[in-house]
């Protein structure tokens, strides 16, 4: 069976089992390896992508449900190429990355949240990140970076 969906603004067709999780379609079939397949049960958030602008974990979405929908991955979040969006720039400026595996998902979650919530509190940001686990950083410096996007500078970058 075939499913046609938009991936990073490009029409793509997947032929195969419609129950295949979106993460596997992206990584194995389209070779978009930015989204990470970590827990495969919806807890870690490392595979987060946007579906019609909403952040969702791609490990739990059967590709067959996405006909005609628009998927944006980390590869497409800033318009492609070497461009960075504001969240990515802040993470870079604050030098918060360590192993890096969780960051594509973190960027997808934070980018969507900060578009809709202009002045979130620190607590609200932490609550929003509850679906994105990180084993290296201890989160707080990621929160610092995200707050700086909203003009709430809490720590020197």
């Amino acid at each position: 069976m075939s499913v046609t969906l938009s991936v990073n603004g490009e029409e793509r067709t997947f032929t195969g089992d419609p129950r295949t999780p979106l993460i596997d379609v992206l990584r194995d079939h389209m070779r978009l390896t930015g989204a990470k397949s970590v827990c495969r049960e919806g807890f870690c958030g490392a595979c987060t992508v946007h579906v019609d602008g909403e952040p969702m974990v791609s490990c739990l979405i059967p590709v067959g449900t996405l006909a005609g929908r628009a998927v944006t991955t980390i590869e497409g979040i800033a318009g492609g190429g070497a461009q960075l969006n504001a969240v990515q720039q802040a993470l870079l400026d604050h030098d918060v990355v360590q192993c890096g595996m969780c960051f594509p998902g973190m960027v997808m979650t934070l980018s969507a949240f900060l578009e809709t919530s202009a002045q979130p509190t620190r607590a609200a940001l932490k609550a929003e990140l509850s679906g994105n686990a990180c084993r290296c950083t201890g989160y707080e410096r990621i929160i610092d970076a995200a707050l700086s996007v909203t003009g709430q500078e809490v720590a020197a970058p």
Partner: peptide, 9 residues
């Protein structure tokens, strides 16, 4: 290595 890590590259 941060830029490639946050852009999924």
């Amino acid at each position: 290595d941060a830029q490639d890590k946050i852009t999924g590259r």
